[in-house]
């Protein structure tokens, strides 16, 4: 049992009014201090390579998608948000996705797909905004997910650096 000893209030504190005026003075002063609000849609938070936003598919510099539709990300996804249908291709890598969908309503932005990917084909981008008026609009198809490798460069470098440690 904890016995809390309350301090005896002094006479001035017991009158209560001086303390009220002190409080009022504090709140009045606060009115003229700089604001901390960020005007969100216009002013977004600065992002860095550590920012783990939404997953995106890498489009390599030659214009081809890096994914070989191995299905590892699909398997790693804890929310079953990823659906992949593969197909054959004439390219050296022999397979590429015919359909690659991420249901962003299910995605929990955990980044496991990024970790699972053996071909550096999927990365968490710095995009954070996720809103739509329909459910169908939030099932992102391949076209919506593709990003040129150059825009994902900082993240790719960061992930490589992290992975080197193992």
């Amino acid at each position: 049992m904890v016995v809390v000893k309350r301090r005896e209030l002094t006479f001035w504190e017991r009158i209560y009014l001086p303390e009220i005026f002190r409080g009022l003075a504090i709140t009045f002063k606060k009115m003229f201090e700089p604001r901390v609000t960020r005007q969100y849609p216009e002013e977004t938070l600065p992002t860095t390579e550590v920012t783990r936003g939404q997953p995106r598919l890498v489009v390599k510099d030659d214009g081809n998608i890096a994914c070989v539709s191995c299905g590892l990300c699909e398997a790693a996804c804890p929310a079953y948000a990823i659906t992949i249908d593969g197909q054959e291709t004439e390219r050296f890598i022999e397979r590429e996705p015919e359909r690659f969908e991420i249901n962003m309503l299910r995605c929990i932005l955990c980044g496991f797909c990024e970790e699972a990917c053996p071909k550096e084909a999927i990365f968490m981008s710095d995009e954070l905004e996720l809103a739509d008026t329909t459910r169908q609009g939030l099932v992102y198809d391949m076209k919506r997910l593709e990003r040129p490798a150059s825009t994902l460069k900082p993240r790719i470098d960061y992930v490589r650096r992290i992975n080197e440690r193992w």
Binding site: T27, F28, K30, M31, P34, R35, V36, T37, Q39
Partner: peptide, 10 residues
């Protein structure tokens, strides 16, 4: 407005 100003908001 005033409550916002007192709490350093806009």
């Amino acid at each position: 407005k005033v409550s916002a100003w007192m709490q350093l908001r806009i």
